[in-house]
Write a protein that binds this DNA or RNA. Sequence first.
DNA 1: CCCCGGCTTTGACTTTAATCAAGGAATGAG
DNA 2: CTCATTCCTTGATTAAAGTCAAAGCCGGGG
Lengths: 251, 251
Amino acid sequence: MNGLRIGETMDEKPHFATDDDVIPQVCRACEARHGGICSVLNGSQLAVLNKQSSKRTIDPGTEVVGQGENVNSYSNILRGVVKLSKMMADGRQQIVGLQFAPDFLGRPFSRESSLTAEAATATEICAFPRAAIERMIADTPGLEHKLYGQSLKELDEARDWMLTLGRKTAREKVASFLHLIATHIDPEADDGCTFDLPLSRADIADFLGLTIETVSRQMTKLRKEKVILVENNRHVTVPDIDRLNEAAGND
Amino acid sequence: MNGLRIGETMDEKPHFATDDDVIPQVCRACEARHGGICSVLNGSQLAVLNKQSSKRTIDPGTEVVGQGENVNSYSNILRGVVKLSKMMADGRQQIVGLQFAPDFLGRPFSRESSLTAEAATATEICAFPRAAIERMIADTPGLEHKLYGQSLKELDEARDWMLTLGRKTAREKVASFLHLIATHIDPEADDGCTFDLPLSRADIADFLGLTIETVSRQMTKLRKEKVILVENNRHVTVPDIDRLNEAAGND
DNA sequence: CCCCGGCTTTGACTTTAATCAAGGAATGAG
DNA sequence: CTCATTCCTTGATTAAAGTCAAAGCCGGGG
């Protein structure tokens, strides 16, 4: 990105340590210290945040924040998949994003959530009080930079998905979804990856703007054409990611 | 938002002026100094930027940036409407956002544009070289904060639109579009607003994930039901914005 | 082990929007 | 003014996805 400091740890160098250099014990092995927002914080900032943070495990299907609710905490996703969705008054629902570890969960500077965040799989988060984060953002430009970066990434993803929702066929939509999951869950495998779907057919339908039945039919077709292999409904193998990508309409 | 300085002008106060207080002549009446990113810059910063900036008028249908092109400048929209769109290899297109004055146009920290920006109406922009803005972002936290704010706004809008694309009927989509334009072009009018559509039927179709014919049919229906009045294809009057909002599925 | 519940698949039929095909207004050039 | 072009509307037909209904699969509890 630009010239801002990325907050590398100085653990290795033997020198006279200050508070800023000491990483709290619980943070050391934490996923969020890698790619997450905590990677731009120094030791004393981590210590401050850590004192107010609480780790929570969330069962699939449990809401983290509800649409229209007041938000009093933000969090880092440490494990699992969180779905962000919007609901219309008559119950129609659309999933507008999926978040994976170590994403930051929450929309800064907005008291009321315009969407629902719900665990799709077993999920672990590290939650902070609203005020603690906002104070830290205000006097840590690097943190705001990091958050800005995530929001730009989410914006790119949202716009990609708008193309999928508006212009792709049911078949292409399902293939696009499988491709999205494949590249997020099994990022290294360029060829022949395998994973468990984090979403039920109903969730997939809500993500793709389709019905359960249509998702099921298209999955069956892709299976019969050997673009994917499916075991036990949830477990998918993609023998050739390029073929899947082609089925998704990305030439 | 938070406690960051919003960069108010000090023109009025009689005191010993520094360079920072003097607003360049051309910026004084500029829309971007109001809500745009220039509102967080001081006089000397505006002067620096101003020296490298160029105002340009862009005809409808002209590309500002092309999908896949390298980006070497960013700009402020001073007048008009810019459409952001994505195209698939086979020509299917989706408009993924509309930008109005005084929005900032460009995606910081990405060399290559993932979308096309094209003037929808006669548009005026103030363009800056890439490097000038990025340097200024790096040492002006208030500027990055402002840009972050715009990106969060765009993300909210993108997600709202995902619900429209994925879950609304053709009628609701068209009504949603009209509502969006009504609230952006004629923001004060709570009741009985009137405006010119900035987009052709083809563009509206590309924004809504529909065909031209379906857009036209739904416009006709809404006209026959007196939800809207249409003159000369482009000029629309909304007698009751709540009825339009209801037709858009927002109860 | 079997039964029950939820999730998923499959089939028959309906509905919505897309496609194909004319025809009609508005705009601009000559 | 007239013609040509582009944009928009309307109608008839088709295709894609939705709805309704039933049956299969899988996992957990008794």
